[in-house]
């Protein structure tokens, strides 16, 4: 009877020894390799710091102008441009300019990093079923594992700071762009692809001339999702020393400052909405050819 009521688990002492063993070997690993890995990520840190300083040291009217220009270039909508500039003005007026710039810097760098890694990975997945069957479970883990769990080894390796924060953001934000690039390429009409083959297109010509252009709407949806998820990580990233809108939110939580929390939270929401609408509009404009489909 005893067997049925107590789960046959590993002994307490054995389990502790196992955990200690894993911890110790990882600690050894990080002592051995920590510096090398830090050196590897150093260029990233320098870029991040440079970009952060650029945003912070540029006079605010110029930043506002650049934001307006970018929004207009993406959306071609005066209303949206005006709205975005007004929203940023309000953010600055309520004293959140510095933090917003820091957040903007880390989100931009994280997005660029995710695009640079994610799109090639997605292409690889689309071209090889074996790659897909290996990468898919990894993406599943990245998306479902609680962020705090992978923060531990990252902090052990790299300490507290911007780079570990950036890595944490990327782990969380990378999967959608990989998945949607893969999906987009796999969804390309077989008939169109066959026609390209029949005209003697090489696989490179097919990739750049047919598959990627036709997958762009999905790839853009992936970039959009990546940005959204990166923004969602801002508060968690601030726990390991990333400057930005997450820091005051964290302070607000521990001190029960309602207004501070709401204001900074809303600033994150505003950033998200602007990023989302502009990138969606841009994605739509890329599909000019779909107009008149039903004629």
């Amino acid at each position: 009877m005893d067997f049925l009521t107590t789960f046959p688990s590993m002994g307490r002492a054995d389990l502790a020894a196992l955990r200690r063993g894993i911890d110790a070997s990882f600690r050894d690993f990080s002592r051995e390799w920590g510096e090398a890995i830090e050196a590897f990520f150093h260029p990233l840190l320098r870029f991040l710091v440079w970009f952060d300083n650029l945003l912070l040291n540029t006079p605010w009217p110029i930043i506002l102008g650049v934001i307006g220009l970018l929004v207009w270039a993406g959306s071609r909508s005066w209303l949206m441009t005006l709205g975005a500039v007004a929203a940023f003005f309000a953010i600055g007026y309520f004293g959140m300019w510095r933090d917003t710039m820091s957040t903007l810097a880390i989100i931009s760098v994280a997005t660029i990093l995710c695009i640079a890694i994610g799109i090639p990975l997605g292409i690889l997945m689309a071209r090889s079923n074996r790659a897909q069957s290996i990468i898919t479970p990894v993406l599943d883990v990245m998306q479902t594992i609680p962020s705090f769990v992978y923060l531990i080894p990252v902090v052990m390796l790299l300490g507290i700071g911007r780079v570990p924060g950036l890595i944490a953001v990327c782990i969380y934000a990378l999967p959608p762009i990989v998945r949607l690039t893969n999906l987009g390429i796999r969804l390309v009409d077989r008939d169109v692809l066959e026609a390209a083959t029949a005209f003697g297109a090489s696989s490179w010509q097919k990739l750049w001339g047919v598959q990627i252009p036709l997958a762009l709407p999905n790839i853009f949806a992936g970039i959009n999702q990546t940005i959204m998820m990166a923004l969602a990580m801002v508060v968690i990233a601030s726990m390991i020393g990333v400057q930005g809108l997450g820091v005051p939110v964290l302070r607000a939580i521990s001190n029960q400052y309602l207004a501070l929390g709401v204001m900074n939270g809303l600033a994150i929401v505003v950033l998200a909405i602007i990023f989302d609408r502009v990138s969606q509009r841009y994605g739509q404009r890329l599909q000019a050819h779909r107009k008149g489909q039903n004629q």
Binding site: D189, D191, V192, E194, A195, A198, F199, P213, L214, H289
Partner: peptide
């Protein structure tokens, strides 16, 4: 060789 298809096979984005 060149080929013409039942479903045309045109590149929709061009």
């Amino acid at each position: 060789t060149s080929m013409v298809f039942q479903k045309f096979g045109l590149l929709p984005h061009r």
